[in-house]
Design a protein around this nucleic acid. Structure first.
Length: 462
RNA sequence: GGUCCCAUCGUCUAUCGGUUAGGACAGUUGGUUUUCAUCCAACAAAGAGGGGUUCGAUUCCCCUUGGGACCGCCA
């Protein structure tokens, strides 16, 4: 059995985190089954579709490591085919022109609302041989939906779903300007692309019932459907663009790395035993639609940060620096080339204090910036004894020829003994002078991460 | 309002009729430590309610309650 999956976003806005997960699940299912995963840009809403969003969607998915097979499929390029199918349906008597004006439709809706009844198009033109065709109205083409019986979809996630055909109206497949609507275009394209598995959000359930009828009308093979539960906001509602942290970009810009987000999204609505961390390969091997739950899940920023932290701690320093550099060049500022080697060396301890790449950026400021600022509270901690200790440290430090933790330790220890204090008594003033804050990396890490001249310069400023 | 759907710790989830209901994140407490963190350990935390079915229900069925999705010439 072949597996052809697709992700079909519309380029009318930045890529949504729910969409990213849908893409991930499609990709995973395809890869697991040695099938193909396609990307289809559904740009038939000409007013709202923008190239800028299309490009952003493609690069966002690339960032996540989801690569589509072949070139991306642009739906608007296939409009002629969609229209041709609509005409075929008309010929077969399975679609028909509807001459209701917008006002007429609106009246119907208002009437239904008033009566507390659900609105369904009244099928006025379905078999309207006797009706006089109005001259001034351009018709839309409606699909002749089944009136009686039921439509059943064996959903791979939701199980068997059954709906009475009477609740499905004769939906529009061609607008009055002859352009195809989503229901038609998506169905025709899925058929043409030989899509075997349609994985999409649960909000598409009704569409699948409608689309199944088009497949049946055309005598096409109906693909398998899998409707995955939606991702909810903290308020428990379908995530919308208005919610904060709803787009992929929102996560990238705070320094979430791609593997971590992939792992988080994978575990949102899907699970495999007690396993929490999945490499990309593991996720391909282990993914299965049977592991997808039926109930919607809420976004949990704390969990995202935690998984990100795990990944940051796990990956090696060089790779981490690569991610870091990529991140700051886009969202912060690029760094002086001279600082690079110091930063790479420091990733090892910097990452222990970070949940995000942004944390690393913040914690590395003392290396990145030439001038450090000492906070007011920290400045107060620098009393006369501190200043004496700093002066004495400078004298000893200058004498050390090869700098290492081993050569530095005796210096610190002798100062502790001389002033009958503890590590904090010596370490804190030095850290404040070098980092600008009493919170920071371990003292030896700090001293060794800076040039000797820089250390002396900063200490002498006190 | 109509149609459809969902329901285990605060959150993500495990359990596919028999478990002291497990794990992870967050939380609390304690320990390690060079500050902050990390790390380690412990604690606390759940089957919405009511009926069935069954020797036995979190698990199967029904009702109630709560929540959600859809109801565009958007996709």
């Amino acid at each position: 059995m072949s597996f052809n999956c697709r992700f079909a976003p519309s380029p009318t806005g930045p890529l949504h985190i729910g969409g990213v997960r849908t893409a991930l699940f499609n990709w995973l299912l395809a890869k697991k089954n040695k099938g193909k995963y396609f990307l289809r840009i559904e740009d038939t809403d000409r007013e709202r579709s923008k190239d800028e969003f299309k490009n952003q969607i493609i690069s966002s998915l690339a960032w996540l490591g989801i690569k589509h097979d072949g070139a991306e499929y642009i739906q608007s390029k296939n409009i002629d085919k969609h229209v041709a199918i609509a005409e075929e349906l008309i010929k077969k008597g399975l679609a028909y022109p509807c001459y209701c004006s917008e006002e007429e439709i609106n009246e119907q809706k208002a009437k239904c609302k008033k009566q507390g009844m659900p609105y369904v198009y009244n099928r006025k033109w379905r078999d309207a041989k006797d009706l006089e065709i109005p001259k001034d109205v351009k018709p839309v083409i409606r699909f002749k939906s089944k009136i009686s019986g039921n439509t059943i979809i064996k959903d791979l996630v939701q199980g068997e779903r059954n709906i009475s055909n009477s609740t499905i109206e004769d939906f529009v497949i061609l607008r009055k300007d002859k352009s195809p609507t989503y229901q038609l275009s998506a169905t025709v394209d899925d058929h043409e692309m030989k899509i075997t598995h349609v994985i999409r959000g649960d909000d598409h359930m009704i569409n699948s019932f409608k689309q199944k009828q088009i497949y049946d009308a055309m005598g096409w093979v109906v693909p398998h459907f899998a409707h995955i539960p939606l991702i909810h906001s903290e308020q428990g509602k379908k995530l919308s663009k208005r919610d904060n942290a709803s787009t992929l970009e929102d996560y990238i810009k705070i320094g979430i790395i791609s593997d971590a987000l992939r792992n988080y999204l994978l575990r949102l609505g899907w699970s495999y035993k007690d396993k929490e961390i999945f490499t990309k390969q593991e996720s391909i091997d282990l993914f299965d639609l049977s592991g997808v739950g039926k109930s919607p899940s809420k976004l949990d920023m704390a969990r995202i940060l935690s998984i990100n932290e795990t990944y940051i701690k796990t990956i090696d320093e060089k790779e981490l620096f690569k991610f870091f550099q990529e991140y700051i060049s886009k969202y912060k500022s690029s760094i002086d080339g001279k600082k690079e080697s110091a930063l790479i060396k420091s990733m090892g301890f910097l990452k222990n204090k970070a949940k995000t790449l942004e944390d690393i950026w913040n914690n590395a400021q003392y290396i990145i910036k030439d001038e450090i600022e000492i906070g007011v509270d920290d400045k107060k901690l620098l009393d006369d004894l501190s200043k004496t200790i700093i002066k004495e440290f400078i004298n000893e430090y200058e004498k050390v020829s090869s700098l290492s933790r081993e050569t530095l330790e005796p210096v610190i220890k002798s100062l502790i003994e001389k002033h009958k204090t503890n590590f904090k008594g010596v370490g804190q003033p030095l850290r404040i002078a070098l980092v600008g804050s009493r919170f920071g990396p371990g003292l030896y890490d700090v001293i060794l991460s800076l040039d000797k001249a820089e250390v002396i310069k900063r200490l002498k400023q006190i």
